[in-house]
């Protein structure tokens, strides 16, 4: 199997390049892309990438595999390789620190911007706040986000306006708190999003939906926020 990997070390390389590596795949085993990177790293320790849980819940190893963003640890080689070849690149649209490691500062900044925490100033009782299973179900498909950035870095609107457009990941979390009936800051949250860029730069391209490794639907959440903003304006 030919693995072509994006390489760049700021200390030694004037510019990035693609390195082709022939990897002997163990027979009868369908490895994940992360396993293959680990095999390569055992021979070439200079290869850099992030990894942690290796089961698709920590969101460390988002990368671009044969043109599509995903998590290396839950992407089987058989699913992405074409003609016995796999091209691995860092997530697009973010500055590269080294090899497959990108600088995610702007992505996190947009997440922090939506105030991703429950706001409720009513003193709580000595027990939990009650919430019906129906109200709790409104958070399904939202709270599961793992902040891997596969969605935002596949979004052309985010590529163009990463400072102004919150991006699919941030907006999914914005809606997670708008949809939570325990949160009291709905109006403030909407006011902070009510401008031409934060939400409305979404053009419904839906790359975010097609790449989300957790099967979430940011476009739908963005649609709900639009509706809330519009119904507030009328």
């Amino acid at each position: 199997m030919l693995i072509s990997i994006y390489r760049y070390n700021p200390e030694t390389d004037r510019e990035p390049y693609m390195q082709d590596i022939d990897v002997d795949m163990p027979e009868g085993k369908d490895l994940m892309v992360l396993d293959v990177l680990n095999l390569i790293k055992e021979k070439d320790e200079t290869l850099s990438y992030r990894r942690s849980c290796r089961e698709g819940v920590c969101g460390s190893d988002g990368m671009n595999m044969n043109g599509k963003n995903g998590l290396a640890c839950i992407t089987p080689i058989s699913e992405v390789a074409k003609n016995n070849k796999l091209v691995v690149r860092p997530l697009p649209g973010l500055p590269v620190i080294r090899d497959l490691v990108v600088d995610m500062a702007i992505f996190y900044k947009q997440y922090e911007r939506i105030k991703p925490y429950l706001q409720n100033t009513t003193p709580a009782s000595g027990r939990e706040r009650l919430q019906s299973p129906e109200d709790r179900a409104k958070l399904d498909g939202l709270y599961e986000c793992i902040l891997c950035a596969c969605c935002s870095t596949s979004c052309p609107s985010f590529w163009w306006n990463p400072e102004k457009f919150v991006g699919p990941a941030g907006l999914l979390q914005a809606y997670r708190f708008l949809a939570d009936n325990r949160d009291e800051a709905t109006s403030e949250r909407l006011s902070e999003l009510d401008d031409p860029f934060s939400v409305f730069r979404c053009r419904g391209i839906m790359n975010c939906v097609s790449v989300c490794p957790k099967g979430l639907n940011p476009t739908k959440a963005i649609g709900h926020i639009r509706d809330m903003l519009l119904s507030r304006a009328t």
Partner: peptide
């Protein structure tokens, strides 16, 4: 655990909301 709920942890719920 109640503090975590107050912070926003999305616990699953019973029919009576607990």
């Amino acid at each position: 655990v109640y503090e975590l709920e107050h912070m926003g942890l999305p616990f699953s719920r019973t029919e009576n909301g607990r």
